[in-house]
Design a protein around this nucleic acid. Sequence first.
DNA 1: TCTTGAATATGATTTTTATCATATTTTATT
DNA 2: AATAAAATATGATAAAAATCATATTCAAGA
Lengths: 143, 143
Amino acid sequence: MLSNSSKYAIKAVLFLALNASEKKKVMVKDISEPINVPQAYIAKLLQSLVKEKIVSSARGPKGGFYLDETNMDHPIISIVNVIDGEKRLNSCLMSLKKCNEEKPCPLHNELSASRAQILNSLRSKTVKDLVKEVKLGNAFLPI
Amino acid sequence: MLSNSSKYAIKAVLFLALNASEKKKVMVKDISEPINVPQAYIAKLLQSLVKEKIVSSARGPKGGFYLDETNMDHPIISIVNVIDGEKRLNSCLMSLKKCNEEKPCPLHNELSASRAQILNSLRSKTVKDLVKEVKLGNAFLPI
DNA sequence: TCTTGAATATGATTTTTATCATATTTTATT
DNA sequence: AATAAAATATGATAAAAATCATATTCAAGA
């Protein structure tokens, strides 16, 4: 459903949300280690996110990555869309081209509710929402 | 969530359930075309399924693939397990190694219900169940 | 028993995804 | 201005997934 890259990207964004700020930017090597993703790899992903304004960055000394207020309000799905593209989440579980509500595939009726629920969560939950859960102690960000 | 290969395999199995029988075996080329999957590719997938007794086959003239009664009773998840391996469906959405009920990742609480629901469907619905839906006209098997 | 039609076994190729490496650009600090 | 510290751009390599090709084995029918 989600590529490895998307999962890594989500982890990195949440890590930044919890550990960085405009005052305290964090550089790639200090992100890659705690979230356990190769440095050059996460660097590339972060660059894509910066280009789409999901993440903020600054170069040079004292530079690094961080999230500003508007970054915090992005829904999780926007991360996935940047990394995996929009269509990945929209393909039928059985990848039947014609599968839809009128002509559902045999798994459609069975799975569409859960699928919709997942999409809805990814669409409605923002970075800020998830961070709040971690801060409240209802969720954790382990490796 | 499911690989292309798994989706193809499910399609092929359903196609066989609907169009083949011990009396009327269907050969690869007559499967690959209607389900729109390359012949050599689906052949390989079918071979794996035969080896695990999800699908039946016979070689030589009048040979081909088909499902017998016990084949029809397999849950859909067994197809996925053969093609993708068991762990694919069991990895955390964020691929955190330590994510579980006690230490849920920030998406866990949000998504685990839907995930469980999907797994449950794949586990409980058999080939026969899905075929029945198609025969009743509640579902369709288009390309 | 010979021929032919089918699956099967095996492995090669291509494409996609994941990963690694490095030269370039920008910016704070001296 | 010069230096050094960071991201950025670009592209190379590796691994995995998808696809293609073919020689072998088995079974039916003549």
